[in-house]
Design a protein around this nucleic acid. Structure first.
Lengths: 369, 369
DNA sequence: GATAGATGCTAATAGTAATTACCAAACGAC
DNA sequence: GTCGTTTGGTAATTACTATTAGCATCTATC
């Protein structure tokens, strides 16, 4: 009837919202509606070639297929703005919570609801978690990882056809907006903070060096030294593993050097705890005999004696950023630069100027040969 | 068609899942499918009386209408077990996270996905959050509050028609399984711990007394005293407000007593921090001159000097309990008792036996008049 | 070079929800 | 009363998707 008489209705036909249906996708992909149904639902027991599947998905994305019409209408009430928040771990560290809080604050005025699911970095749980989110009809997705790293976005995420932002991770193809902490700048400002207090011989204890964060913080350290014309001394870089134990061992190693440092940049707070222990055991006072800075601003750093100067991870701001950059228009071929947010240094009481005699000794030694 | 020819199909009709459709609701509510559609979708521009609307909603709930068939089918894959977790606040305290983690662990083997939403104790956000959860087709709901208290369950929660458990809260009518910490037992065991160390004159600094937790902890304190045949002295109970400042002031007040206590039961850790400060300012050592116990086992209590003996809130166990008591069969008239889980005492180094002379003094005084 | 499976799809169908067009009763105004 | 209007719906239609059954087309085998 419809195709026979498009003018059947005397009402203007222009008011049709022209929703995308499986028929449209079928036409675009050059197959039947049934095939589209099979592909989109991943119906078991059906045989569709991979090529056809790809064509269907591509057409669905291109046309902006948003799932069942009925679904969209049925879940009408106030669900305009449900934002999915997928994160691999929720309980292991406070960062995820902070980021969620940032996202919540940023979307507060808009009345958005945040729906949080844990993917648990598990190949069977992750698709379940994402599907649980999406089948509820979310209008946007934030995809977060606990550790800053490059991710391979699974197809059920990249094909969602809703605004998506990556938080604390990024893809190789830069297909989505992504935001991460600026660890390089953080390492640099931590080191610079020590330099401005008059330190020249500054050691650093890294994290596990294969991790992006450890490499970046080290890079920042080297940049700060270079900027201040302080030569880089590999002896002063000890590889740790983020643990207090490694911090203790590394500090002991540093103290045994012929020219021990006057300040140590611990690349996370737990390392700094081990460092504190070692210094105490060595009979050195903080900050008079040795300045220490940490990284991450964990709760405990406030309660150390003396309170630890450290850098706060900008997860609150990252959560806000993610909400603000949920761009409705997803441009297919676009490449997004990775946004980097600053880790601000919170100054407490573990940094002071090096002791005069120590500085003197260093000066002597550095000019003696 | 359905009622006219049930045998229409020559295939066995038994395999029909008998899904609830709008037709069924219409039959139950005594109206047409169209009316049901109007009501459930709140279609604007239609005129349906409030009575009919109520009947439709009631029938829909009674029959367990779960939204569109297509939706249910479309989101078929692996969505058998999505559990909604609604909580008022996520970021303000770690308890919610811990409870979520407990729930996650408990449902791990079943492959359940937890979908978390914040209600924010906000009359406009809460329904949105719950709807965001339910419209995704959750199979169960856990409803949690940060503070232990009685709640009025909104109708969109109590009418969900899916297994529901209350976590850290409960309703007056006991219509749902509920689990809360056993604060009375916690207060009792904290106090008993001090008694078994030989203390007789034990003070307590309460929280805001209108809160359930404060009252219960106080009750536990009194029970422990009664059990040990120690008379209750109102002078030794100071009302605080959970803050460190109040803990400081209360401790000072206690020290000014003619017979100061030899031990203080602070009803939360922040109060204990204030107490520590006051004792330090008064030149008293912990635990030699004064024993202190806290409550909540906040992160910081591990890092105080000396480390604080305190009680851990059983939120992990509560999360697990909630999952395990998601009973599929919801009995309409049933009343569930409120489950209480134990707060276990973690012993650190803030409790010791009272000094001999102090005990002596107390003994002298208590027998003198 | 027939035959028997696979493979890869489509046509047709049936179930379900949204919407349009219409209808009947109740109620007032005159 | 009877005309118009509001209220409260229904019947019929439309639109969409899931699923079943079957039809070509390859491909390997004897």
């Amino acid at each position: 009837m419809r195709q026979a008489k498009p003018q059947k209705s005397n009402k203007p036909a222009v008011d049709k919202p022209a929703r995308v249906t499986m028929m449209d996708i079928a036409a675009a992909a050059g197959c039947s509606q049934a095939a589209v149904s099979f592909v989109l639902n991943d119906t078991p027991g059906t045989r569709i070639s991979q090529q056809t599947r790809d064509r269907v998905w591509e057409a669905a994305r291109a046309l902006g297929y948003t799932g069942t019409t009925y679904t969209a209408k049925a879940s009408y009430s106030g669900l305009d703005n449900v934002i999915g928040f997928a994160v691999d771990q929720l309980a292991t560290s406070p960062e995820a919570i902070v980021a969620i809080e940032g996202a919540r604050q940023a979307s507060w005025n808009a009345g958005n609801v945040l729906l949080v699911a844990q993917t648990l970095s598990d190949p069977v749980m992750e698709p379940k978690a994402i599907k649980a989110l999406t089948s509820g009809g979310i209008s946007a997705l934030i995809y977060m990882t606990i550790y800053t790293r490059q991710v391979e976005l699974p197809s059920y995420v990249s094909n969602l056809n809703i605004p998506t932002v990556l938080l604390n991770c990024y893809t190789a193809d830069h297909a989505f907006p992504a935001v991460v902490p600026s660890e390089i700048a953080g390492g640099q400002s931590s080191t610079r903070h020590l330099i401005t207090h008059g330190h020249h011989r500054i050691a650093t204890i890294t994290g596990e060096i294969w991790m992006q964060a450890a490499q970046d913080r080290l890079t920042g350290y080297r940049r700060a030294l270079a900027t201040a014309d302080i030569p880089f001394d590999p002896e002063l870089v000890i590889e740790g593993d983020w643990s207090a134990g490694a911090g203790y061992a590394a500090t002991m190693k540093l103290l045994a050097l012929k020219e021990p440092p006057t300040a140590i940049f611990c690349q996370n707070d737990r390392t700094a705890i081990g460092c504190y222990e070692a210094l105490k055991d060595a009979g050195l006072r903080i900050p008079q005999d040795m300045s220490v800075v940490g990284y991450d601003d964990e709760e405990i750093s406030r309660h150390l004696v003396p309170p630890l100067t450290t850098s706060v991870l900008p997860h609150l701001a990252m959560g806000q950023w993610a909400i603000e950059h949920l761009n409705p228009e997803t441009v297919p071929g676009k490449r997004y630069p990775i946004a980097k947010l600053e880790c601000s240094l919170v100054k407490r009481h573990s940094v002071a100027a090096p002791r005069a005699e120590a500085r003197q000794v260093v000066d002597d030694l550095s000019t003696s040969p």
